[in-house]
Design a protein around this nucleic acid. Structure first.
Length: 582
DNA sequence: GCCGTTTTCGGCCCGACTGTTTTCAGTCG
């Protein structure tokens, strides 16, 4: 729960979103109409993805410009920004036992059941619910039975091991493993990973898999019998849900190929995007579901084998999965203004990587060869600077020694592959840079990064970053916000100021492709593009295998509506060399 | 509570699965 009890505590976007979500939970328990509940949830999600400080937006009196925020919620946001509290929320908390909100997290228990247990048995905590279930007190309630009671016990047991959101790379690897195994079955024709993995979100809740087949049962049976499944949550002829060993939920749907397009579209989401599409279908006289478009007048069906056909039916161009968040992609589609999203094939170089000179595993030569094997045509070696002792950062002397090796490897690799010397320079906690200007002036590329003092107050940490951006020798900021997924929150930076300074000085901001970072994130990358700030997508590789993380950086960029023209490492070598010189 | 080339009021996506039911409510995504 959020720290709203401290008078004058400055609430962050995230805390405000959490409060709206908590309000939604409590309203739902109270039996409030679902649409009012959903309005709070939509607002929470919208705020969570919003790339600007609500405080700044409120100062401009633009809160209602945010999707899902009307006059009422804008007023509530202002109240929270001004006072650190929301009276409405505090009142609800007095009214609704907080244990009931926790009970909602149990799989299979919703607001109706939770309130039934509370009213009829006085149950107000998960522990009390578990005790009642084990004492066989739930099964006599109306609408309940022995099976429902047992499911609640299992649901409580899985609460502890149930993961919160999982990192994209971990979920993607697990999803590929399961899907590929199922596609080996003779009944399986083809399949996709859907859901938030396909949309490239940085963290993943459930794994969603879709397979085309005319004979679903053998696939369903194989799915629920997998050794990595701990619990079957449900299994029917077209849909099964299981809990995996790591606590993640995995859903599988199997549909015939002629309906695969609507099914994949439905199963990719996002939910908000789907709702919009179904609304649009209605305007055109159809209902849309995972099976087909169905005419509202005569009940006739239009089936779609591909997603392209689904969008075509709605008069839209194909919308790539990464854009399907109802963040303007539908309006852009109708206006013919969808971005031409960057693709992994557009990337010609990697500007951020480490070698054994600091904390990397390989030599300069080995990294160059690995990069070339990954289809790149130039790279920047950017080892750590001197004050990052834990990473064996380079003294000025070692920096010049490394230069000789880099120049030698550059020559050895031939004219079609270039190796440049950069550095990932510490922005020290006192705000100074880690090398004097004359050293920086001699390097091909200078990346400045924050690794320490990330919890400093906003003004202090922002000033450090701005100082680096304004240094004429600093070319790029590495992983600007310093987040580590899923554990470390980003630094409390004034990103409006960071973008303005980057724009003014031409400093590039990185999208670090490491799945633990994905920093800038999607929303901030989009903001950067809107403001005309240049980006770079880099792997930060410390070994050959880590060049593969580029795909996550590309997914993040695509979610941020980034085009190749916004990203400097799509540039041909000549343009890049000119940029380094300027 | 939001939102508007049919609306400032009256809508708000749609279906699968489960367990309890005599036809459906609750939950989930």
């Amino acid at each position: 729960m959020t720290e709203t009890d401290t008078p004058g505590h400055l609430l962050t976007n995230r805390e405000i979103a959490d409060i709206f979500d908590a309000v939604a939970d409590m309203l739902q328990l109270k039996g409030e109409i679902i649409h009012r509940v959903m309005a709070y949830r939509r607002a929470a999600e919208s705020i969570r993805q919003y790339p600007r400080d609500l405080r700044a937006v409120a100062a401009e009196d633009k809160l209602t410009d945010i999707e899902g925020i009307g006059e009422t919620l804008a007023e509530k946001i202002r109240e929270m920004l001004d006072t650190g509290h929301l009276e409405f929320y505090d009142k609800l908390r007095e009214e609704i036992p907080q244990g009931l909100v926790e009970i909602l997290r149990i799989n299979g228990v919703g607001p109706k059941r939770a309130m039934q247990f509370y009213k009829e048995l006085g149950i107000a905590t998960v522990a009390e619910l578990e005790a009642a279930a084990r004492a066989d007190k739930l099964s006599q309630l109306s609408g309940m039975g022995a099976k429902s009671q047992q499911k609640i016990i299992e649901g409580i047991e899985s609460l502890a091991r149930r993961s919160t959101r999982v990192r994209l790379d971990i979920a993607l690897t697990a999803a590929e493993r399961i899907l590929n195994a199922l596609l080996e079955l003779p009944q399986a024709l083809y399949g996709h990973i859907g859901g938030s993995i396909r949309r490239g979100r940085a963290t993943i809740g459930d794994i969603d898999l879709l397979i085309a087949s005319r004979e679903a049962m053998p696939i369903m049976e194989a799915f629920v019998a997998r050794p990595d499944v701990t619990r079957v949550l449900g299994s029917g002829p077209t849909k099964s849900s299981v809990e995996l060993l790591n606590g993640q939920q995995c859903d599988l749907r199997v549909l015939p190929p002629e309906r695969y397009g609507t099914a994949l579209n439905y199963f990719t989401g996002s939910q908000a995007h789907n709702i919009r599409l179904r609304d649009l279908a209605k305007d055109r006289g159809y209902t849309l579901n995972e099976w087909a478009f169905t005419s509202l007048t005569d009940g006739s069906e239009i089936t779609c084998e591909t997603e392209e056909q689904v969008y075509q039916q709605l008069g839209l161009p194909y919308i790539p999965p990464e854009l399907r968040e109802d963040r303007g992609e539908i309006e852009a589609g109708y206006a013919g203004k969808l971005p031409h999203l960057i693709d992994i094939g557009d990337i010609r170089s990697d500007l951020h990587m480490h070698t054994e000179w600091s904390d990397g595993k390989l030599t300069v030569r080995q990294m160059a060869e690995a990069a070339r094997a990954h289809g790149l045509s130039y790279i920047v070696i950017s080892d750590h600077s001197q004050s990052l002792g834990v990473a064996n950062g380079l003294s000025v002397e070692r920096l010049w020694a490394q230069r000789e090796e880099i120049r030698r490897v550059d020559a050895e690799m031939g004219p079609n592959f270039r190796v440049f010397q950069g550095v990932e320079m510490e922005i020290r906690t006192d705000g100074t840079l880690d090398y004097p200007d004359e050293v920086l002036a001699d390097l091909d590329v200078v990346i400045a990064s924050l690794h320490s003092g990330l919890r400093q107050p906003r003004e202090q940490v922002t000033a450090r970053l701005l100082n680096a951006i304004r240094n004429p020798h600093v070319d790029m900021i590495g992983h600007p916000r310093g987040q580590l997924i899923p554990n470390r929150e980003p630094a409390d930076l004034d990103m409006d100021a960071v973008f303005a300074a980057a724009k003014e000085t031409g400093t590039v901001l990185e999208i670090n492709a490491n799945p633990q970072r994905l920093d800038l994130d999607d929303a901030h990358a989009q903001r950067a593009v809107q403001l005309g700030v240049l980006l770079s997508i880099d792997t930060d590789a410390h070994s050959a295998g880590e060049f593969d993380v580029l795909r996550y950086g590309i997914m993040t960029a695509r979610r941020g509506w980034v085009e190749a023209q916004n990203v400097i490492n799509t540039w041909p070598i000549e343009r890049f060399v000119n940029w380094m010189k300027s």
